[in-house]
Every structure is written in C-alpha cells, then in structure tokens.
C-alpha cells in the first residue's frame, strides 16, 4: 500500500510511518514522487489541500496520513457529535480540510479509492514517544492539566526527556524518535490506552483500511 505521510517535521513523519506500518501489520511504501515536508502547524493545514490534490490527481498513492501536535488545542470527544466541528481543535481542523477537499475531487479513470486518516499528538509527538517511560505522560493527564491551568509537562520538557536536549539536531531527533517508535510499535495497545483520542483515532481510521485492502 502506498501511503503519504504529512506531519510537522521529517522526524515526525518517520515516526508516523512506523506506527502506520504497525497498525496495518504490513510495511507501506512511500510516495517517491513527493517528498513531502511541512514546517509545523499551521503549515500542515495550509498545505493540506495542495498535497491532497496532488496525491489524488498526480500520484498512485492509496492514502494520506496526517498527524499534528495538539499544542493547547486538544480534541474532545464532544467535537465528534453531529454539527459543525470545532476548528480551533487541530484534529477537527485537519479533518474538516480533508473532508472539504475530498468532497470536491473529481472521479479519475483508473483511480481507486483514496483514503485519509488523521491523528493528534497531545500535546506533541514526543508525548507518544515517551509513553511507557513515565506514567504521568498520558493524553488525559495533559488535558486535565490544561483545563486546570497547570499543564504537567511542556513540549520543551518532552523534548528534553526524549532527546536529552530541547535543541536536538535533525539527525539526533530522527534517530532517537524512530528508535523509540520501533519499540512502541510492538505495544500499540499501551499507546492506544494512554492516548485514546489522538492515537486511538489514527488507529481506528487506519485499521478501517484493512477491509478495503483485502
């Protein structure tokens, strides 16, 4: 299966690829034609329409996976209720954009269905990577802290934990992040349990593709 990954950095995209492969239970191929690269939020959101159009019309990609950091805008399950989405929520904003673009796509002869999935790392991808190292690092803990006005850890603190510095170079960041992702990929259940909204959503959507594949 050919899957394009769009994240906030190349290191994030390498991590997401590992998770997507683990969720699907088989390795995916990248879309060689496009070496996608974003540069943080909201660039991901801004370039999403162009990426989706290009992948759909000009590539043989089967799917796109988008994973972004929540920053201080985590997803609430209430956002999934019928009605307008809360576009201040990064996950809702990504989903809205994907839906809007897909609704406008013209049928293309010979093209199969094009799938898309979105995930949300609360507050940043490094929280997923630190999962299991510290029981306090969970989606709910961070969201509770945010509402209480006292977040339990910052994005910079997560970087220090994962990379040993809050200013990792790209090679270190990618190497350490993918090492941790490979270990975590062997225990997705833990990630899903501790990050049920953002990681859980990604798992559910990607697993939903399996039926299409068979």
């Amino acid at each position: 299966m050919k899957v394009a990954i769009l994240g906030e950095s190349s290191a994030d995209e390498a991590v997401v690829r590992i998770f997507v492969d683990a969720i699907l239970g088989e390795p995916t191929d990248s879309v060689e034609r496009y070496r996608l690269r974003s540069r943080g939020w909201p660039a991901v959101l801004n370039q999403l329409p162009a990426v989706l159009h290009a992948l759909y019309y000009q590539s043989d990609a089967d799917a796109l996976v988008v994973v972004v950091d929540s920053d201080s805008h985590p997803h609430d399950v209430a956002h999934d209720d019928p009605g307008p989405r809360d576009d201040s929520c990064h996950l809702c904003a990504v989903r809205s954009k994907i839906d809007a673009v897909r609704a406008r796509l013209r049928p293309v002869q010979g093209r199969g269905s094009f799938r898309a999935a979105a995930g949300l790392a609360v507050p940043a991808l490094e929280a997923w990577l630190w999962c299991g190292q510290d029981s306090l690092v969970t989606e709910q803990n961070w969201i509770n802290g945010l509402w209480a006005g006292e977040i339990p850890y910052t994005k910079l603190k997560l970087k220090q934990w994962v990379y040993g510095t809050d200013r990792p170079d790209l090679v270190t960041e990618t190497t350490r992040a993918t090492e941790r992702a490979r270990r975590l990929a062997e225990n997705l259940a833990m990630l899903e349990e501790r990050f049920p909204i953002g990681f859980g959503a990604l798992c559910r959507e990607v697993r939903g593709w399996r039926g299409d594949l068979r």
Binding site: G164, T165, R167, P168, D169, L170, V171, T172
Partner: peptide, 12 residues
C-alpha cells in the same frame, strides 16, 4: 543545527 552545535556543544 550547525549554529546550535557551536552555541551549545555539550548538547551535541
């Protein structure tokens, strides 16, 4: 990263 390497060598 190269400039940070100069400024914060211990972190590299």
């Amino acid at each position: 990263d190269a400039l940070y390497r100069l400024a914060y060598p211990d972190r590299f």
